[in-house]
Design a binder for these strands. Structure first.
Length: 858
RNA sequence: GCGGGCGUGGUGGAACUGGUAGACGCGCCGGACUCAAAAUCCGGUUCUGGUGACAGAGUGUCGGUUCGAUUCCGACCGCCCGCACCA
């Protein structure tokens, strides 16, 4: 055999060929409502935004999911593994403004290109389920869902303050406001009150919190982040009477988690945008000035001055219900209007912020918390915000802080001055966006009837394509006639809502639509009933809160409105790390692409100029730093399997992986090595399993079966890098074997065939190629069951165990596996006789098949 | 500030419920093949001392529990992530 010529794996031919074979055999197609009896497994990766090209993050994300999908399929599961496009969003509008491109054409063009790139990776996807969220067939169903939510009381319309960019004439998300200016226009952002649609996620706050406990296969830190975001807190609402009414106000409601410290009150503070503050500002110029100063604080100087607490004494006084004394009312910049009631009672001894404030304005600091009853502490610069004993507090004195909370609340209720309440950090979800490229909100505004839902027979409300991006602002508002419609209720001329949905809605139910993407209802109950929840969801940690929380809420709302039958969408979640790369700068400080840099022993130089290049930090691949590697180029040079193998092999998938050229070359070497091995073994004489297998051949068989067990365990626990290591090991051992006895030929063939099947979830094309050569005519690896380790071969014949003296390794001894203590200890003693000479053995420890330890003294 | 996580060779990392630390990959060193190169194959590679068998040290630092600690406990140092005046 001329191995140098024939034994070169031509991935460029093989990869498309096997993709065609899978397609022809329908390997990855699932049914909406399966007729078979196989158990179901739904694998889903977060679907991509169609930016135009796939990047390495996609390669990693979809490779991880694909390994799971292929592995579960081999284990006999009926696997659903779909793909689609998160296709609405601002980049399409920006492209329209910059290149005069139509957002729809731009988006669908990008999708076509990315679909091709994904298909070249050989992912085991059911492409017949593909959809884009900008398809009217999808977003029309979403409009139906919205109307159902509305009918179920989960939708509200109310005024809200938004970040308004006066140049772009659009609403900005918080993260689009940089130093108080719009990220695109650079204009100073205004706070503007707009009538907006809200989904009542807070109705589910308790359920969303409790539900986290049921998510056993979610990363702890994601659950913790959601828990903090939901922000459960328990406390009391306390009502303070004003000594004199002002306007319509006779008193102020305050939320506190520390009703036990009410006797330690020093002042009451309200938020600058509290209605009472505005009332005070009406005829108090100084107060109005302070309030205005606080309002502008939200912008550029905010970052600098955050720590500085400032206040304004209104001159008003309130009465503490517990001790009847009066306290001043301040307006304070650190009190937030949208948490609790927008007002606090200040207890400087038990709260650091209150203490800072009291010190600054020279307010009293009554001491009401102590470590012990008989010890009244002196308050320095630190407040006593922990647990303790209540002192100087009338009927609460002597109680623990926990007891005092309950007693205080009971007394407040008795007095009619307050009650125990639960508070949440979570806010309702504002879903209106003044944007074009999104799902139209299916509402008609009538001056007589108010907002009216678009009747179901008029759905979908289709996004018009004849829009102009010449003017700033939302093109839907400028459209000559789109918004002019008759009111569905009274028939008079009315106006269509021109806002579109937050695109997070699009991704909040796509997993349910994938179960039956052609359904004429948003979901097909029989299908979602079968497939949901998603068994394994894979995506980036950056979605730990928003997307994953919205999807959890949406699923509960869909359940309430009868669209799905589960409460949690994702039973298992895996969050993968980022793909990183070195960054490079030339002498002028400009970023360089990796392919512009040549590295040698004396440092890095520019490919064209030969000038020195600075090698910078390893950072997440990003276009701005030019440290990107294009998957298409890698696939062209090394093939899809090499790219897949590399992203799996280098480190645990939850961590960031650094893309290195030498690492990829290593992966490519392995591809070729495995292929050569297979060609060699395929050319050998084929024998049946001999009656007995011993010696080297038996050892090889044992390694093969240990590898099956180890790879199976590694895949079950997402330890793909460990699976890779075990496969390298088996390949190395197979290459090293010699001899052509029947037993060796059998052992080698078995090892190679198992290797093909074990490697197939990770490198599916090579797996087919190798399996096809070894086992011609036996079908596709993609349709083979997962190999089972032969238990008899997992039991070792003999073991080499460590022999320690006083816990230090002094030798090893090889004994039959499972041998009992007596003979093992005797052999061990012999092995370390030199060390034991002249010592007295105090104790002999024997852990079967593991270790022997002699405790000695002179 | 609050909450969470992580520290292992030159490097990415492995190590089951405490039981031979460094699997496997990358890099590096040496060798084979070749006119040469590429490709491939073989050997070595934690550190220190020694030609060597071997000896000593070693999983961020210090201490504890144990026959035995990368693993368990305590304190400290460093790095990363999330939230951020949430009353």
């Amino acid at each position: 055999m001329s191995d140098s010529e024939t034994a070169r794996y031509d991935f460029a031919t093989a990869e498309p060929y096997w993709q065609g074979q899978w397609d022809k055999a329908g390997c990855f197609a699932a049914e909406d409502v399966p007729s078979g009896a196989r158990p179901k497994y739904y694998v889903l990766e977060m679907f991509p935004y169609p930016s135009g090209k796939i990047h390495m993050g996609h390669v990693r994300n979809y490779t991880l999911g694909d390994v799971v999908a292929r592995y579960k399929r081999a284990q006999g599961f009926d696997v659903l593994h779909p793909m689609g496009w998160d296709a609405f969003g601002l980049p399409a509008e920006n492209a329209a403004r910059e290149n005069k491109a139509d957002p729809a054409s731009w988006t669908y063009g990008n999708i076509a290109n990315m679909r091709g790139e994904l298909q070249r990776m050989g992912f085991s996807l059911d492409w017949s389920r593909e959809f884009a969220t900008c398809d009217p067939e999808y977003y029309g169903q979403q409009q139906k869902i919205f109307i159902d939510f509305w009918k179920a009381g989960l939708v509200e319309r109310r005024d809200a303050l938004v970040n308004w960019d006066p140049v772009d004439m659009t609403v900005l998300a918080n993260e689009q406001v940089i130093d108080g200016r719009g990220w695109r226009s650079g204009a100073l952002v205004e706070k503007k009150k707009l009538s907006q649609w809200f989904l009542k996620i807070t109705d589910f706050a308790q359920e969303l919190l409790d539900g986290l406990k049921t998510l056993e296969r979610w990363p702890e830190r994601v659950k913790l982040m959601q828990e903090n975001w939901i922000g459960y807190s328990q406390g009391a609402e306390v009502y303070f009477k004003l000594t004199a009414d002002i306007g319509d106000f006779a008193g102020i409601g305050v939320y506190t988690t520390r009703p036990d410290t009410l006797f330690g009150m020093s002042f009451l503070a309200i938020a600058p945008d509290h209605p009472l503050a505005r009332e005070v500002g009406r005829d108090n110029v100084a107060a109005a000035g302070f309030i205005a100063a606080c309002a502008s604080q939200g912008t550029s100087e905010a970052a600098i001055e955050t720590a500085e607490k400032r206040g304004f004494d209104t001159g008003l006084r309130v009465i503490n219900p517990f001790n009847g004394e009066t306290y001043p009312v301040w307006i304070a910049n650190f009190v937030l209007m949208d948490y609790g009631t927008g007002a606090i009672f200040g207890c400087p001894c038990g709260d650091q912020r209150d203490l800072d404030f009291a010190r600054k304005y020279d307010l009293p600091v009554p001491v009401v918390v102590a470590a012990r009853v008989d010890e009244v502490p002196v308050i320095g610069p630190k407040a006593l915000d922990g647990e303790g004993v209540i002192v100087n507090s009338g009927f609460l004195t002597g109680l623990s802080t926990a007891e005092a909370k309950a007693v205080a609340i009971a007394r407040l209720v008795e007095m009619g001055a307050g009650k125990g309440v639960t508070n949440w950090r979570l806010r309702d979800w504002g879903i209106s966006r003044q944007r074009y490229w999104g799902c139209p909100i299916p509402v008609i505004h009538c001056t007589a009837c108010g907002p009216v839902p678009v009747p179901e027979h008029d759905l979908p409300v289709i996004l018009p394509r004849d829009v102009s991006f010449e003017r700033p602002g939302n093109p839907l508002e400028h459209h000559p006639d789109w918004s002019h419609v008759d009111c569905p209720a009274c028939g008079k001329l009315a106006r269509r809502e021109t806002d579109t949905f937050d695109t997070f809605i699009d991704s909040s139910w796509y997993f349910a639509r994938f179960c039956a993407p052609q359904s004429e209802t948003p979901t097909l109950l029989a299908a979602v009933n079968h497939w949901l929840p998603v068994d394994q969801y894979v995506g980036g940690i950056e979605h730990a809160i928003l997307h994953l929380l919205y999807a959890r809420f949406f699923t509960r709302a869909l359940e309430r409105t009868g669209h799905v039958t589960v409460k949690e969408p994702f039973a298992g979640l895996f969050t993968q790390g980022m793909v990183t790369h070195e960054s490079y700068k030339d002498e002028g400080g400009s970023w360089l692409y990796p392919e512009q840099v040549i590295k040698s022993a004396n440092g890095a130089v520019h490919r064209d100029t030969g000038l020195p290049v600075t090698v910078g930090r390893i950072e997440k691949m990003s276009k701005s730093k030019r440290n990107t590697v294009d998957p298409a180029a890698i696939v062209g040079k090394y093939g899809a399997d090499t790219a897949r193998w590399f992203v799996l092999s280098d480190n645990p998938p939850e961590r960031d992986v650094e893309w290195t050229e030498s690492g990829v070359q290593g992966a490519y070497r392995f591809v070729q090595r495995l292929y050569r091995l297979a060609v060699q073994v395929a050319g050998e004489r084929r024998v049946a399993l001999p009656a007995t297998v011993s010696g080297e051949a038996r050892k090889l068989r044992q390694l093969t079966h240990r590898t099956i067990a180890a790879v199976t365990e590694a895949l079950d626990s997402f330890a793909f890098n460990v699976a890779v290591a075990r496969l390298y090991e088996l390949t190395g051992a197979l290459s090293a074997t010699q001899g052509d006895t029947d037993e060796m030929l059998f052992a080698r063939f078995e090892g190679a065939a198992m290797l093909a099947r074990l490697v197939a979830p990770m490198m599916p094309h090579l797996g087919e190629e190798v399996y096809g050569r070894l086992c011609p005519g036996q079908g596709l690896v993609a349709q083979q069951p997962w190999p089972q380790a032969n238990q008899a071969l997992l039991v070792l014949d003999e073991v080499t165990i460590a022999v320690q003296v006083n816990g230090k390794l002094r030798g090893t001894v090889t004994v039959p596996a499972g041998q009992e203590a007596g003979p093992t200890l005797a052999a061990a003693e012999l092995a370390v006789a030199a060390v034991l000479a002249g010592q007295t053995i105090v104790k002999k420890i024997h852990v079967p098949d593991r270790i022997v330890n002699f405790v000695v003294k002179p």
